[in-house]
Design a protein around this nucleic acid. Structure first.
Lengths: 356, 356
DNA sequence: CTGAAAGCGCTTACAG
DNA sequence: CTGAAAGCGCTTACAG
């Protein structure tokens, strides 16, 4: 297998191939077709096609001859021709809002791994946090993929439903009726986080929300509201904020004005930005202000103090999304809705006892 | 334009379309073909093709009728059919060693932007730092792309040359004879870095090299050697090391044994790992050991002390690589070799005066 | 089990 | 300027 894949990077053809066939292949730019194989093996092209892609639908003898000929010609089936005929491209699209968002990396990684493992290729598009861009990207990519994962979509429910009516679709961190999605169990992490803060004596907490179009930001706030009500403590939403370090920078004034002793940010980037802005003003974290985030991105344990955060299983989310797509594509049995992915609190130095 | 792209997410057809055509389209799964348009506009399919893709090769009147019909049917040309015929997929591949390496993000971002702007789609593959995996990924993807960017390749020169003989290819951070590549001007940044360290009194410096197969790691060391010889100071290579935080962790013992007062790591990840390991052992940076890296990744200014590093123009590198590919594809005039991208020193807290 | 034919949805010489 | 035909490289009923 390894040998095979290496060999085929080699441009030289087997010298025993009849020069008539070899010339024709060379003229075409080096790629052999099933017709070349058919000629070399003395069978019909349709037989070549069957031998190569329908194991067992052809006599073992014929199959062996065809395979050998294919190998001598370093044949690789043209995926475009196959796709045109079958309607299957063996390509999946992953659409994200912002490639530079660390949350996205892990999702990409998980998705890429699952796709490759299944013999699928991953196509990539970025929407730059814009619903319009996202619609355009999907429009452009949809015809050449078998399915789509929307990882951090900014589209409306309606648009999403429409897309799903035409292509297999899986959402990450977003729920829309009737559509398969991979979701975190927000509740587990949020409960732990609130219990942690309350245990430290905090009675008034701010939530720095994410973009208005972020479904998951709303979920996080909703769960916090539940927990805050139950515990009888104060909670105030401050936002919306861009889900970036800059978003955190510009939130500081409103945080201070809100007179909260602890802040939970929609994501780690906002939390990190807030901590930087606080440090620049000489505000000590956690002594004067406790800060926590979501996601546990690279960087959260590098900053000082290290960031307390709710970790989600992002690589796993990327994997499950792709598996959900593949299930829809194979699609005999109904596609199981993915289980909620546990989230968990990671306590570090950015949260501490409320100042007395 | 915007309106157009949004509208086509809408599944409903223009109700004035003859039901015969509408039914046929619906049966086929919603996608109209040039035959549907031809029928609706009363022309030959070949005329539809020309009107839509060869502006000016058709009378303005016909073109208008065809375009209108296409719009009524929400026509999108099937990219697979077009690609099969023309040999052009309008897709480019980006192959990277490790998606979780922050250096890669910026390259991806630049490449994606340039590709999208030119109407190309970016396909993505990861080699997991393995030459075998990389060869396999290229093998799998090559037939369906117009060109390939190798961003952090682990292949040998021979293999690269072979691939280039079959597909337009651009390298990032790697030079191979006759092949277009986007390279940093290592010298500018390294000179600044060495001058900086020497100015701080360091006379004995360690270089934590990257993977053996990393061309750019060798370049960096070579330039440091030049500068060290000229300045008459000591320089010792310590490595190879995996280009990761863990790589930095496990390098500490050898760094201490080498008795150097300053260490330059192949990349920021190794540098950060080294700093973490040093901190864990109570070694103070920069008082007891100065540390510097390359790349200026996200995280380098978050760690304490913040990391002194040589910054490269990675987004730009991704862009230029794609532009280089497009130039080869349009290819009348010879493809200009990209200019070297300036690198520059970013001084932060991790480097300081040598302990006296 | 295998061959001959048609077709996937485009593009592009070739005529007229 | 436009039509009719062939072809890109596969797959897949349909016969035999």
């Amino acid at each position: 297998m390894t040998n095979d894949s290496l060999a085929s990077l080699d441009p030289e053809l087997d010298p025993t191939v009849p020069s008539e066939i070899a010339d024709r292949i060379r003229r075409r730019g080096g790629a052999a077709t099933i017709y070349d194989i058919a000629e070399l093996a003395g069978v019909n092209p349709s037989t070549v096609s069957r031998a190569l892609s329908k194991p067992g639908r052809v006599s073992t003898d014929t199959e062996a001859r065809v395979r050998q000929a294919a190998q001598r010609l370093r044949f690789r089936a043209n995926p475009l021709a196959r796709a045109l005929q079958t309607g299957r491209t063996h390509t999946l699209a992953l659409v994200v809002a912002d490639i530079t968002n660390p949350v996205v990396f892990d999702i990409v990684r998980g998705a890429e791994k699952a796709a490759t493992q299944a013999g699928y290729t991953l196509v990539f598009a970025e929407s730059q946090e814009s619903g319009e861009e996202e619609a355009r990207a999907i429009e452009r990519i949809a015809p050449s993929v078998d399915g789509i994962v929307l990882a951090t979509t900014r589209l409306t429910d309606d648009r999403i439903t429409t897309i799903a009516s035409r292509k297999p679709l899986v959402l990450i961190n977003r729920a829309v009726a009737e559509i398969v999605s991979v979701l975190p169990d927000v509740d587990s992490g949020v409960s732990q986080l609130l219990a942690h803060l309350i245990g430290l004596g905090h009675r008034s907490i701010g939530y720095l929300s994410g973009p208005e179009t972020s479904w998951i930001s709303d979920r996080r706030f909703a769960r916090m509201l539940d927990a805050a009500e139950k515990a009888g403590i104060g909670l105030v939403e401050i936002g919306p904020n861009p889900p970036t370090i800059e978003g955190g920078h510009s939130a500081l004034r409103r945080v201070l004005a809100a007179r909260v002793s602890a802040v939970v940010a929609f994501n780690d980037l906002i939390a990190i930005g807030l901590m930087q802005a606080a440090a620049a003003q000489g505000i000590r974290v956690p002594d004067q202000l406790s800060v926590a985030g979501f996601d546990d991105i690279f960087g959260s344990e590098l900053i000082v103090p290290a960031l307390t955060t709710v970790r989600a299983q992002l690589v796993r989310a990327g994997e499950l999304a792709v598996l959900g797509l593949l299930a829809q594509l194979d699609g005999d049995e109904p596609v199981p809705q993915s289980p909620l992915l546990e989230t968990s609190l990671v306590v570090r130095g950015s949260t501490g006892p409320v100042a007395s």
